[in-house]
């Protein structure tokens, strides 16, 4: 291949890709330095552990969101799924820890069904992902309200507390679970045929059909996996928070989209990576912490998120065109 002309455009595109990953890591380091300078307590082991414990459930939702965005989707129902998973966990009358596997099983099953419906609406009924998942979000919300009559009353097995806040050898339990899930997805996306199919379908669904891949089936699968991940995230979040209410995970739909977008997962589908998405989570969490360190009202986090998501998508959109 040597001796062939390298077109400038291709080289520029490659450089941009590397630059992007660089920029993300750079942002993480930069924000950490800023935070550490402003508050010496920031870089202590205890504080970092707290931050990761707090961020882990979001990380799981971002995995879900990224997976769905890869196949040109978007899932606005993730937060509603999280809350529903939390409410579902209270449905088991006993508070015995032995029920925990059962609860996880039920949540995974429920997630699969919900994701299946989302995916069915999107792939078979041609509903836009936005509307389909919006409807799902509202529907679940309604079911939850009806079931709990406004306020959930059930109790959780005490083991959830450990799942949400505990540690193994000093590493937060939920962080370990997040990393295992992320590793699994990373391997799947990078090294398996299914992962390749996901990128092909997200990038060009029409071409995917013409090379013999079933866009419908794979897309459906992504929605299912996404809702299952969101359900698990809900259980870990409720374990972290400690109390169940109808709004567990409220705001996570936006946060997960923001983190994924910052991490370079394209809303147009077909590009983005798990590592990028997790870096996006880190940046988002660091920024939120900075707001606290600076002594600003927490509402600034909302403003910051809004500005960042618009800027980040704008920047990525510009780069794609250049």
């Amino acid at each position: 291949m040597s001796g062939l002309a390298v077109t400038g455009g291709a080289r520029a595109a490659l450089a941009a890709l590397r630059l992007e990953r660089f920029a993300l890591i750079g942002a993480v380091i930069g924000l950490t330095i800023v935070a550490a300078t402003l508050s010496p307590a920031f870089l202590t082991l205890g504080n970092l552990r707290d931050i990761f414990t707090q961020a882990a459930p979001l990380g799981m939702v971002v995995l879900a969101q990224a997976l769905i965005m890869l196949v040109r989707g978007i899932d606005l129902s993730v937060a509603s799924v999280m809350a529903s998973a939390a409410v579902l966990a209270t449905a088991f009358t006993s508070t015995d820890n032995a029920d925990i596997p059962l609860i996880f099983g039920a949540v995974l099953l429920g997630g699969a069904v919900i994701g299946g419906i989302n995916g069915w609406l999107v792939t078979r009924r041609n509903v836009s992902p936005l509307l389909a998942t919006l409807a799902m979000m509202i529907l679940l919300q309604g079911v939850r309200f009806a079931y709990t009559q406004g306020a959930p009353s059930g109790l959780l097995p005490s083991g959830f507390r450990w799942l949400g806040t505990g540690q193994i050898y000093g590493i937060p339990v939920n962080l370990s679970v997040l990393l295992i899930l992320a590793l699994g997805l990373w391997v799947m996306l990078r090294y398996t045929m299914l992962g390749r199919a996901i990128y092909i379908i997200g990038g060009n669904p029409r071409a995917a059909e013409l090379v013999g891949l079933s866009a419908q089936r794979v897309t459906m699968l992504c929605y299912c996996l996404g809702s299952m991940l969101a359900g698990i995230a809900g259980l870990f979040l409720v374990g972290f928070v400690g109390t169940v209410d109808n709004w567990v995970g409220r705001g996570y739909e936006l946060d997960s989209i923001v983190a994924a977008v910052i991490g370079g997962v394209s809303l147009a589908g077909g590009s983005g990576s798990i590592v990028g998405a997790l870096l996006g989570v880190l940046i988002l969490v660091l920024l939120s912490n900075l707001v606290v360190i600076l002594g600003l009202p927490v509402e600034f986090q909302l403003i910051l998120k809004g500005v960042i998501i618009i800027l980040a998508t704008g920047l990525y959109a510009r780069r794609m065109r250049a």
Binding site: L254, K305, G306, V307, I308
Partner: peptide, 8 residues
């Protein structure tokens, strides 16, 4: 994003 900013 705008909604988030405005809510803040």
């Amino acid at each position: 994003g705008m909604a988030s900013v405005l809510s803040g």
